[in-house]
């Protein structure tokens, strides 16, 4: 019974070529490991965290400076959250270029998109929790961008913030989302994601021959464990040497010199500096989302995405990456352009 349940998620044998590292670059596996890590470290942090203004800042300070292993666990949670977003995007790229989004993998693609949205939401709601100046103003700026959406913008902003500005109600909403709804949603959609992959006959392998099969235990399992160890070591070392930021306590009446949205929304903030608000914050993101949603129907019969689809996809990605890099490293006080060195 127990064995049968897992059989729905994992096969017993896989084609030899499916276990090659360069097929998936281990990205889906790394993302899985990182979500599990987040659930564990988040659970620990939540024992010491208090979701109320002032208290939240003090409790994070307490975690950071006094609690046994507190600093390490907070650093791990912080950096893993950010790396998870990078890994999820790289995973999306690899899946795109393998053309692994058409039937029978449509369900996998869509559940993947939901997972991406969950990773974004988790990072965004987590960002506010330390309640320092960095968090407060980043969330203020990012949520203010919502208000530019025609008709429903103000309503959306009010709904998310629980009022017209970031305050205790916002912290309460963000914390609830972050620690109850999101973990459940992750478990559900990840299980669905894995089930879809299994149902489609495993990861997509070009020209796999069904003769050359390897047993999952130990061939795939050993490789997975080794890779998991490498990723864990990397994250642990990173968290040991780089502290998660904690600036002064949030002060609604004092805006610091440099205020930026969280880095994954900086491309939107950059767009807003260059073009008309509705175009920047509504039409362009909408266009890209619709493209991702329609992708499984655009090139149905092909093995790989057509040149046309590739050009659109790559242009979108390059624009987003360029704007993100500009926003993160080339903008100083007052969002003036500057060189980072």
């Amino acid at each position: 019974m127990y064995k049968n349940f897992f059989f729905h998620l994992r096969p017993r044998k896989v084609p030899a070529r499916a276990v090659r590292f360069t097929l998936t670059w281990g990205l889906g596996g790394a993302a899985t490991l990182m979500v599990v890590l987040q659930l564990l470290t988040g659970l620990l942090l939540n024992f010491a965290y208090e979701p109320f203004p002032v208290h939240s800042y003090l409790s994070v300070q307490h975690i950071q400076t006094e609690l046994f292993l507190g600093r390490l666990i907070r650093n791990l949670h912080h950096w893993t959250g950010h790396f998870l977003l990078v890994v999820a995007c790289l995973h999306l790229l690899r899946v795109f270029f393998s053309g692994a989004y058409v039937t029978p993998r449509r369900g996998t693609w869509y559940s993947g998109l939901v997972l991406l949205l969950l990773v974004l939401t988790a990072n965004f709601t987590g960002y506010l929790l330390p309640w320092d100046q960095l968090a407060f103003w980043a969330i203020t700026i990012a949520s203010s961008m919502l208000a530019y959406i025609p008709v429903v913008g103000d309503l959306l902003q009010n709904l998310i913030l629980g009022g017209t500005e970031v305050n205790g109600a916002t912290l309460h909403i963000f914390h609830s989302f972050h620690t109850t709804l999101l973990p459940l949603a992750f478990l559900f959609f990840m299980s669905y994601h894995f089930w879809c992959i299994r149902k489609a006959g495993g990861v997509k392998v070009d020209g796999a021959d069904r003769q050359n099969m390897l047993p999952v235990v130990p061939e795939l399992l050993v490789r997975e464990l080794a890779f998991a160890a490498v990723v864990s070591c990397f994250l642990l070392l990173f968290a040991m040497f780089f502290d998660a930021p904690l600036t002064g306590m949030a002060n609604p009446s004092l805006t610091p010199e440099t205020v930026k949205a969280p880095w994954y929304f900086l491309w939107l903030q950059e767009l807003l500096l260059h073009m008309q608000p509705v175009l920047a914050l509504c039409l362009l993101p909408l266009a890209f989302s619709i493209f991702l949603l329609l992708l499984p129907f655009l090139s149905q019969k092909r093995e790989k995405p057509s040149l046309f689809v590739q050009v659109i996809f790559i242009s979108f990605f390059l624009v987003i990456i360029t704007l993100t890099i500009t926003g993160v490293w080339f903008r100083g006080a007052g969002m003036k352009l500057l060189l980072p060195w």
Partner: peptide, 26 residues
Amino acid sequence: SRKCTHLGCAVPWVVERGRFECPCHA
């Protein structure tokens, strides 16, 4: 209101120049 209509930063009043100057995007 103190809230900048661009993206919501708190706008200080600069007495010397007699105007509000937003620190975020000027």
